[in-house]
Amino acid sequence: MRILLAYDGSPAAETALGLAISRYGDDELVALYVAEVDPTTYDASAFGGGTDDVPDSDEAEAVLEEARERAVQEGYELETAVEQGSPSDVIAEYADEHGFDQIVMGTHGRQSISEVIVGSTAEQVVRNSPVPVLTVR
């Protein structure tokens, strides 16, 4: 199975990482960090559109490196990816476009005030995902 772990380094994401490693460690496990970008104020094409140009890419890589190290300590491999955009949209689209069988994510990540008002990222992913979503409290 191919498992996509939505990962932002939050306590809920850490819990989801632990569960994903213990339950799916022998499967292909990919941690995805989504750098939230407001498309009305950020134009990736102006910066070449590469991962190095994603706002907060240094933070994303640091967070993902910690997750990768945790997986290695427990005897498993963890691939990583960084994308930009609206986290709920990007997570669901990434899972669909890359042929994942399931998404694992925490129920509460790093939230902006708009997420509190509009609904959590996890809730939106569950509603829009083309594959099953395992949410972890």
Rank of each mutant, 00 (worst) to 15 (best):
A44E: 06
S57I: 00
P11S: 15
A13D: 00
E74A: 11
G18I: 06
S10Q: 10
Q102M: 13
V34S: 05
A81H: 14
P11H: 15
S57P: 00
G50R: 13
A81C: 07
R68A: 13
A13Q: 00
Q73P: 01
G85A: 07
D27W: 02
G48Y: 02
E83T: 10
A35R: 00
D43Y: 13
A20H: 03
E74S: 12
H98A: 13
S45I: 01
R68K: 15
P87M: 01
S86Q: 12
E59M: 08
T15R: 14
S22Q: 13
A62C: 05
Q73G: 13
I91M: 11
L78A: 08
V104E: 00
D58E: 14
G18P: 02
E79M: 05
P11L: 15
Y76M: 06
D52H: 05
E65T: 11
S86R: 12
Y42V: 13
A46H: 00
L78E: 10
Y94R: 09
D56C: 05
A31V: 02
A62R: 15
E79Q: 10
D101P: 03
A62E: 14
D96G: 12
D53V: 00
T40K: 09
D53W: 01
D56W: 03
G48V: 02
E66T: 12
E59I: 03
T80G: 03
E36S: 13
Q102I: 09
R68S: 14
L78T: 07
D101Q: 09
L32M: 07
